[in-house]
Design a protein around this nucleic acid. Sequence first.
RNA 1: GCCGCCGUAGCUUAGCUGGUGGAGCGGCUGAUUCGUAAUCAGCAGGUCAAGGGUUCAAAUCUCUUCGGCGGCUCCA
Length: 625
Amino acid sequence: MKLLLIHSDYIEYEVKDKAISHPEEINIKNDRMEEALTVFVAVEKIDEKSPKQAVLDAGNEIVKTAEQLKVDNIMIYPYAHLSSDLASAKAGKEILVLLEEFFKKTKFIVKRSPFGWYKAFKISCKGHPLSELSREIIPGGEESESLKKERKLSSYWHILTEDGTLHDVGEFNYNNREKLKKFAMYEKEKSRAVKQEPPHVKLMQTLEIADYEPASDAGNMRFYPKGRFIKKLIEEYVTQRVIEYGGLEVETPIMYDMDHPTLSKYLQRFPARQYQIESDKRMFFLRFAACFGQFLMAHDATISYKDLPLKIYELTRYSFRREQSGELTGLRRLRAFTMPDVHSLVSNLDMAMDEFKVRFDLSLSVLKNIGIDIDDIEMALRTTKDFYDKNKEFLVDFVKKLGKPVLLEMWDERIFYFVLKYEFNFVDMSDKASALSTDQIDIENGERYDITFTDNEGKQKHPLILHCSPSGAIERVMYALLEKEAIRMKQGKKPMLPVWLSPTQIRFIPVKDEFVSDCEGFVDDLQKISSYYHIRGDIDDREESVGRKIRDAEKEWIPVIVVAGEKEREEKTFTPRFRNDELGDSNKSYSIQELHELMLGHVKDFTQHKLPLSLYVSKRPRFKG
RNA sequence: GCCGCCGUAGCUUAGCUGGUGGAGCGGCUGAUUCGUAAUCAGCAGGUCAAGGGUUCAAAUCUCUUCGGCGGCUCCA
């Protein structure tokens, strides 16, 4: 049976002449239905063998679509032209009647236009992506291509534990692994319990980190000074780690010719997802990943096997994906995002697997140091059955490294360009999972881009390519950090960004005007201790009460607050308010030198920058209420 | 993109069944010089997201567009 489903504002028809010698007898010559799913049906030979099954399969498929579209009305419309292998007129009519009866038992209101007549009809199609669908129903057993693919994807979800056992996702005992359960359910069922605005949206605004920009396209954010600074620190940290790992940092264009022979093939598979721009009558698309520039560069390079693994790195600001508008939320998913992407060209699968291990450690370490721990993430491994069977030990090693069970998705055959992929996913308060770090073993693009290296026998070969983002999109890392703090707030704890990411690390509050100059001296002393390590202090010199200034500093999540007056001027020691106990003891006194050492422990491994704001709080504009 | 909800000063918001918008925070001015989460007083901020319609009269009803959120879909 062939179906053409049209989500229509209305469908109306008028019966004209007989199309076959003995058409169905009719009472009404015309009819109309509003807000209907119009189902054009061609009954085929194959349906005659098992009419009931055909009706059941078709009916269920139609119900599924109708529920998705939230329509109540269904118009069944015989339409022979959909098939070249039609059932007999008698069988066709019977099956359509059965189909109508199928719907009479459901909540839907169904009408059927008569069989065997030429009819004039008018239809108004809504025109959204789901409004026109075609389906092929093969009764019993065999499913349509798309269904088959879907089924295949959904039936191979497992939990892989450290002992190497594969568990069924549905039957696994999650016990204390609530987040893994949520992640598995999110991936498999796409189901979620909590329905609310993600808390990081309010936080990114009130902390003056980032905000929506109505004058741009949705999903293109503005970053306020503090947000830009935090983002820069993360960007630089990830870059530094990749360079230490051996990545060669490059920069490539953000737009590419849509007609370029290599790229156009790639694009044709996903035509609707890019921004397109015109320049001198040529059409360009904005890059949606760093791959293009790096692959084109590698294509032109002369590479020896001795150079492998060859690691090329770029931090794209930005990559663009025209995600569906309904998918965009805060910093979680954007249309313009900053993506660190390091590719590694390797000679064969063995080298790929060795390299994969190195990068796994890199990703885990990068995330951990940024402030996202193993407890905050759930891992997914995605691979083919073939790869799994041959390399089970290799995969289980990653589970052991992580120290907790992971979600394993397995395909019968390779559907994508990679044979193996891992992701670290952050699961937020709304049970939504978002991928952060990821790495893939790509066995297609070396050839597609005609990248070659010379092996030790002088032969030209295509490398395999690993695609890794050690942190995931920087904006998404910020989302994860904020969501993590939102969870802490809900538990009644004080939220805080990691010290190295806090724009102000120590806030000095003079009790009177006359102590502002002393505070300037303290900030200066802090800076003089080291010309390399910058501990960022500032001064709240506003004409406000001390209580008020402390309150404001707390609202800014400043890790250390120091009130300075007569005592501090005399003794040069301070009794700071530490935001948490790990930073220091709020009942003890510290000298400037000791405060510096305390802070240093939290920042020494990261990139160093001075305060990106005015030293004086009184001289700062407010970017957000 | 689809379905649903929402959009009042920079921010948070009051405004009942239509009768030309009130407040708190923030900002500015003045007073206060203060020791660990909000000092006091005054002033200035609003084509009620934008545009059209209904009406003597629209923040309020209606339509369209834009933006945000939730769900669906999607996530190479």
